[in-house]
Design a protein around this nucleic acid. Structure first.
Length: 469
RNA sequence: GCCCCGUUCGUCUAGUGGCCUAGGACGCCACCCUCUCAAGGUGGUAGCACGGGUUCAAAUCCCGUACGGGGUACCA
């Protein structure tokens, strides 16, 4: 590997599941790694032992695999690299760049209150030469009156006054290192050249840079702080308030390709007005410098639109296998489902859905004898209205009569139904559709009717007719 | 409070001093197509936060204000 080879990392903290914000960070790292022909490292930042639960790890790797974001090295777990961090802390301690502290949260706050000190920790133990031991924390000795400059690919130069930074804790009183140290040590150890992460971490960067220097690691990585993804309330996407788990998108039938394409468009855009394009093109067009600075709102409607485009572009065979796989995922097992029927109807289904979850209600009447009744109230009203028109009984009567004897194929079924409309001078399709499919809208009728078969069609028509008295 | 970041149609964006009476996309509306719904086509709606500079020229550069966001943990 040449010394200038690009090495980036995606370093999430395990938290139960991957949310879209993290997924986008992962994607941008992945895009950049691919663009630069570099290496993407997956590193799990589980220095907080409460988060270091094995079941949380799959929650990170599975969505990444689903999205197709392959990493080249790792996953590395910080919980397994504690020795390295402790060594770094010891070095800082030995060189008097860090010190032990036995202050409790309460005592710090009490002092701050009486002194009217507004910062965090007041540096009380800096020169007290406390001995290391149980219940002792270690703090980094933040230099005074200095300026730390972050050279950020997205934001330009950002400077911090070290006086604004407290002597922050680098080792907890239980002896475990905090993420700031782990992050610093690992980025050096793994020879990370570019750190691409969310803007919420911008404020931690000066601390990391200070330690980087204290540990004598040489030139620091290039930073790029991504704008945050926000919800409708314009606040950072949070698990509590927003539905953002990546797994949910899979469950609703978003294709991973659509998700990746949409995510790439959040905070970044090519200048040729073309939004939907293969990932290879996105990679070649991608550049950190072109990323926006302002937070972006995650717009479900646009995701749906992009997804719809991707679905429509699927060749029929691909669509069928995707749908069947999806049905397995949601455990929908209608009695008469066959790939052939799906294949025959593929294009008319594809142009009517925006997510795979929309498929069942388009075809359930074909694949099952029992299909869920329409539940939308407005829809029910419209159906009631459509079915109570004067001529409906006439239409149904005539339909039963004629469909009983006509040649059973798509064309003649269509001709027959249209003929009924002509004879009775009314629209014939809607009542028949409602009687046969249970819904007012749906697929073009004649082909699926042919597939359903004369017997079932007549049955349903008679039943509907009987219901009207 | 303090520190940091940001602000182009409702939303995502293009725009890097003249090509901008600001382009595209989603959404929304209308029309065309159509005996359902879509898809497709055509058209429309709507934006440079505000105030000062700099400049022959500013959405683009500088300053301020307002507003929004992030951080301020023995979370990451």
């Amino acid at each position: 590997m040449s010394p200038t080879a690009t090495r980036v990392r995606f370093a999430p903290a395990p938290s139960g599941y991957l949310h879209v914000g993290s997924a986008r960070s992962a994607l941008f790292n992945w895009l950049f790694a691919n663009k630069m022909d570099g290496t993407l490292i997956l590193r799990i930042e589980d220095t907080n032992t409460e988060l270091a639960k094995p079941e949380f790890y799959d929650a990170i790797t599975e969505p990444l695999k689903w999205l197709g974001l392959k990493w080249d090295e790792g996953p590395f777990y910080q919980s397994q690299r504690v020795e390295k961090y402790l060594n770094a802390i010891k070095r800082l301690l030995d060189e008097s760049l860090a010190y032990c502290c036995d202050c409790s949260r309460e005592s710090i706050e009490a002092r701050n209150k009486t002194k009217g000190f507004k910062g965090g920790y007041d540096g009380h133990c800096r020169d007290r030469e406390i001995r290391d031991g149980p219940n002792v924390t270690i703090r980094f000795k933040t230099p005074k009156n200095q300026t730390v400059e972050i050279k950020d690919s997205i934001r330009g130069n950002v400077t911090f006054d070290t006086n604004e930074l407290e002597d922050f804790i680098i080792r907890r009183s239980n002896g475990t290192p905090v993420f700031l140290v782990a992050n610093t040590v690992d980025d050096a150890d793994m020879q990370i050249t570019h750190v691409i992460r969310g803007e919420d971490l911008l404020n931690t960067t000066p601390k990391i840079l200070l330690m980087w220097e204290a540990l004598g690691y040489g030139p620091s990585p290039q930073y790029a702080h991504l704008p945050l993804l926000v919800g409708e309330d314009k606040k950072k996407l949070s698990k509590r308030k927003h539905s953002v788990a990546l797994g949910e998108f899979k469950t609703m039938g978003i294709l991973p390709e659509s998700m990746v394409n949409y995510l790439a468009l959040l905070g970044w855009g090519p200048n040729d007005d073309k939004e939907i394009r293969p990932i290879e093109e996105i990679i070649s067009l991608f550049s950190l410098e072109d990323i926006n600075k302002a937070p972006a709102y995650f717009d479900m409607k646009k995701l749906y639109h992009i997804n719809a485009e991707y679905i429509r572009a699927l060749p029929p065979e691909m669509f069928v296998s995707t749908v069947i796989e999806y049905f397995q995922l949601i455990k929908w097992e209608p009695a008469y489902l066959t790939p052939k029927v799906l294949h025959d109807l593929a294009s008319s289904i594809q142009e009517r859905i925006e997510k795979l979850a929309d498929v069942p209600k388009l075809v359930d009447w074909l694949f099952d004898d029992e299909f869920p009744a329409e539940t939308d109230e407005k829809e029910i009203k419209k159906i009631t209205k459509a079915m109570s028109l004067d001529k409906v009984t006439d239409v149904l009567d005539l339909a039963v009569e004629e469909l009983e004897k006509c040649t059973w194929n798509e064309t003649t079924i269509g001709e027959t139904i249209n003929g009924i409309g002509h004879t009775l001078e009314t629209k014939s399709q809607v009542p028949i559709r409602i009687a046969v499919t249970g819904r007012r809208v749906g697929l073009p009728l004649f082909k699926p009717m042919e597939i359903l078969g004369r017997q079932k069609v007549l049955e349903r028509l008679r039943e509907a007719r009987a219901g009207l008295g």
